[in-house]
Nucleic acid binder design. Sequence first.
DNA 1: CATGAATGAGAATTCATTCAT
DNA 2: TATGAATGAATTCTCATTCAT
Lengths: 225, 225, 225, 225
Amino acid sequence: MAYQRTPYVESKRAEARERSLQAALALLGEGGWRSVQMSAVAAHAGLSTGALYLHFPSKTHLLTELYRAQASKELAVTAEIAAREASAAERLAGAIRSFAERAISAGRMGYAMVLEPTDLEVEEVRLAFHAQFIAQFRQMLDEGCEAGEFQIGNTQVAAACVFGSITESLLHPLGPTAQERSGARRGKRSDAAALVDSLIEFCLRGVIAPAESKAKAKAKAKARR
Amino acid sequence: MAYQRTPYVESKRAEARERSLQAALALLGEGGWRSVQMSAVAAHAGLSTGALYLHFPSKTHLLTELYRAQASKELAVTAEIAAREASAAERLAGAIRSFAERAISAGRMGYAMVLEPTDLEVEEVRLAFHAQFIAQFRQMLDEGCEAGEFQIGNTQVAAACVFGSITESLLHPLGPTAQERSGARRGKRSDAAALVDSLIEFCLRGVIAPAESKAKAKAKAKARR
Amino acid sequence: MAYQRTPYVESKRAEARERSLQAALALLGEGGWRSVQMSAVAAHAGLSTGALYLHFPSKTHLLTELYRAQASKELAVTAEIAAREASAAERLAGAIRSFAERAISAGRMGYAMVLEPTDLEVEEVRLAFHAQFIAQFRQMLDEGCEAGEFQIGNTQVAAACVFGSITESLLHPLGPTAQERSGARRGKRSDAAALVDSLIEFCLRGVIAPAESKAKAKAKAKARR
Amino acid sequence: MAYQRTPYVESKRAEARERSLQAALALLGEGGWRSVQMSAVAAHAGLSTGALYLHFPSKTHLLTELYRAQASKELAVTAEIAAREASAAERLAGAIRSFAERAISAGRMGYAMVLEPTDLEVEEVRLAFHAQFIAQFRQMLDEGCEAGEFQIGNTQVAAACVFGSITESLLHPLGPTAQERSGARRGKRSDAAALVDSLIEFCLRGVIAPAESKAKAKAKAKARR
DNA sequence: CATGAATGAGAATTCATTCAT
DNA sequence: TATGAATGAATTCTCATTCAT
């Protein structure tokens, strides 16, 4: 009983923590990683800088947690799509489309999460984030191979290729210079849609088994196990 | 005439400049962009910090020049391959292989050039560098389409996908954590070779015209061996 | 309520700010604008350089604020004299005397405020400060003209002349070389008094209507309206 | 004979010296004291920085010499006017007008010579320059007093007042902000003329003996001797 | 627990002056 | 003598982290 924390205090703590993450996220979206400074985060969250250190032992911890939280959301969306009742190709296409469209609508934030400069420690988290996505794509690819839909030598590499295709093809629409451009004419949605379609086309052709060899591919996949 | 400008003096200036770039390059390779600090570069080059500013008006200029110099070399290699007498598919495969292998052998340096965080200004140079590579790949894709080898909806996006596939699939072998890992067992070359093969397979399938040209492609593939 | 913001803390912040300004002022008085360096100010104020930047966003801000604060005090004194119940000539003479004597007793500080070299931005503040003084003198001159006491073609120029007369005639007693000289024999007060008297004489004669034309002057002034 | 320097070499040396001063002057006029940097002067003069130090032992020496040279020219003009056959009042008015008009036509240069920030050492030279002008004005005033034209308690102070009146009334037309303003409408010459007229009016009235006491003044002046 | 002022180790950049060639 | 690359001490400004209150 002595150790029991009152739920009130508990939630107050948790809420301040959450607010800090939200503040960091907002700053990230506005001015990139550079503007995510501890004092700015604290101010945004309505805390003192000192209080921030009650919740996060260091800036790195705050950033990595922020990264993880964002990545988790994205991963959940992808996971949901991966779990649908549909062909692997359909699910893969859906996941790519979902990821791409979410990144585009997140604007600069999407860019920051995928490519913009950060600390060394955060960079590692970013790589881990990439790795997690690649793992999810890989799973879809593996399932597609087993089902004979896909025919892929190395699904790990192919998954990385899929993820790289997404990020790189989004890079220029999302990049820092893209901000000013879109200031004038809020980038036609059709542009984005066309981009995503081309992206999906490329990725699917990179993994789909040529029509006549589907059966063989399935057999092969089973044989490997 | 009495004070003839000796070529020696000329080269001394140029040499100090070059030494500075080399020093910056070395630091970049060792510790990434973060460790490319003016004082460190100067020390590495055997200069004072002030002397550095005789050659480069600012850190940004030094970094962008460094970036550009490295990128130019890579672009030249790719351009040479793109200009060869060969089918578009062969040239594309060759360009991908060349780029990937060179990046792998450059180790952390390759990583830094392609993906690691930097200054905002350098980031823009990096984007431009990406764009140039993508332009080269796009040209190969366009030629392949004209020759009937490739069948691609949007060659710009496809080129970005190819480049993204390369960089992302190299990301993990090259990344910061990869350094420690490879410290123990200097990454088997066969691993790298397999990775590059899978990468090329993915990219080619993403662009090559399907079905009807399959027989030809198979024959070709055998001929290559 | 538990963490009641104490007025003490408020004043601590303000006090550090004030201490910084005082430190800067002291340095200015001792060694002129050159010696007002951020690290020196911080040391004098018992702060770290970083702390200085909590109170002033840049050196320029610190300097301009310092300048403005000092100038405001002087302007207030002049304004008070200008508002007295007395003839324009008496008030003008009083203002000149007050300004001159205050500058003389401020020693090198007075010199620094009026004439010594500074940064470009501070230079602009100094010009504005001059302009404000001239405006005050001009008002007195305008009032004197209306009252028929003064007869002046261009009161703006005349006010500038008055101010210029003050500063230039104080320049040599106040200047950097004056410091060493007065180190030996602390400049006789009578010298200063005589100087100020001559200065006032010159300025008043420059603006006062010749005796015989006083009436005419008054008429003229009214006619102008 | 052994020690005799060839006139050729002598003149070459002198010419390089002169070119350096001209270069410094040009830089001063273009960008103020800040832009008078040794390397820039050398470049402008077609010399190496090292060679500059063969002619001037330090920057301070260069600047003081530059100052002196400019001041000498101005002083010569004033001296010529002071020596003319005319009443003291006419000569004083002429000297003021000449100085003011030359300063105005020198534009930013005039400002730099009179008021803009410099080094401590140069500041002293500037004061000496002021002092020299004041001495010349004082001589005219003394002569006018002896002739009974002027009636002045302290001619040293009055001379300072005259000089101060000139510089301060020119300050705003010449100051740094004045440059942009005049960019639009190249300050009407009539403005300048009117300013100078008012300036002269103020100064003359400050020193001229009231009509009725001219005779008395003359007597007084003689009595003092 | 909370505060927020303070820290202090750097980082980039400048420029008068020197000195090996 | 002439060169001009090099020096290096100064100076401003930054920001994650700490700690007295």
